[in-house]
């Protein structure tokens, strides 16, 4: 087995430091000890203070992020393809996009609430906004990176514009699109947790963390954070696995 201990060295030392500090401080409202956090994590189906279990809340967050991410992808991929393919589309949309992109998704919260009311829609809006720009820019980049010789070789087969899009532009930019989706999903995942901390939400990991904080249950807060981290890593690994399986050609030919 190719197991490398040094990769675990730092996290293990941190956990050790945490436990030492927790025992030293001896105040569960400031720093809960590892045992308390683990007891929450190891019983993921147990109800927490009447707000549902860890799994219930995680599933809720995942459902929201998946929906918001899907909306973002459905908008950003076609728009990115257009921007990569037509200079006019780049000119028209480019300025607006570079002006909106630096605005953090959470800065939209007040407007989102004003437009869409408190609830699922405004949370989806924030998530979709977070995922939108990385997917858009990566898609446009991917299309611009499609080799001219590929386009020319296929146009010599008598290909129409639609053939070129289907047979060259889409598959040729797919690795970048996928990479943009991976980055976008990471941001969407951060956004969902933050959006769930807003007033008017009554489920999700973000809600659970704020709710448990209100009850002084810091071990639940930390357990929620750990769950967010673990889910984030797992999904990222899923993206990487697909990339290795389908887009390995990218590393050979560019």
């Amino acid at each position: 087995m190719n197991f490398r201990f040094h990769k675990l060295l730092l996290p293990l030392s941190l956990i050790l430091l945490w436990q030492v500090l927790a025992l030293y401080i001896s105040n569960p409202f400031v720093l809960p000890n590892i045992g308390a956090v683990l007891s929450v994590l190891l019983r993921p189906t147990a109800d927490i203070l009447g707000s549902g279990s860890l799994i219930d809340n995680a599933m809720m967050s995942l459902f929201r992020v998946a929906l918001g991410f899907l909306i973002a992808s459905c908008l950003a991929v076609p728009l990115g393809l257009a921007m990569g393919h037509w200079e006019a589309a780049r000119d028209v949309a480019g300025g607006l996009i570079s002006a909106l992109r630096p605005v953090p998704p959470l800065a939209w919260v007040p407007l989102a609430m004003a437009w869409l009311k408190i609830g699922l829609l405004s949370i989806l809006f924030i998530i979709a906004l977070g995922a939108f720009f990385p997917i858009l820019l990566s898609t446009a980049q991917g299309v611009l990176g499609v080799k001219r010789s590929w386009m020319e070789a296929v146009s010599m087969m008598g290909a129409r514009e639609s053939d070129l899009i289907r047979s060259v532009i889409l598959p040729g930019s797919a690795p970048e699109i996928w990479n943009g989706m991976r980055v976008g999903f990471g941001i969407a995942w951060m956004c969902v947790v933050a959006a769930e901390m807003l007033p008017g939400t009554s489920s999700g990991l973000g809600y659970l963390i704020m709710y448990a904080y209100g009850w002084g249950q810091i071990q639940v807060v930390v357990a929620g954070m750990v769950a967010i981290g673990i889910i984030g890593i797992l999904i990222d690994q899923l993206f990487i696995a697909v990339e290795r399986r389908w887009f390995s050609w990218r590393s050979y030919d560019r």
Binding site: K147, S149, W150, E152, A153, V154, S155, M156, M157, G158, S167, V168, P171, G172, A174, F247, W249, R250, Y252, D253
Partner: peptide, 27 residues
Amino acid sequence: PGARMGMIFQEHALLPWRSVLENVSLG
């Protein structure tokens, strides 16, 4: 450009995500 002429480029210009057979049968 059209299918009445076949072109062979300086660098092969094969599509890297397709197998050799899939490249040949694309036309």
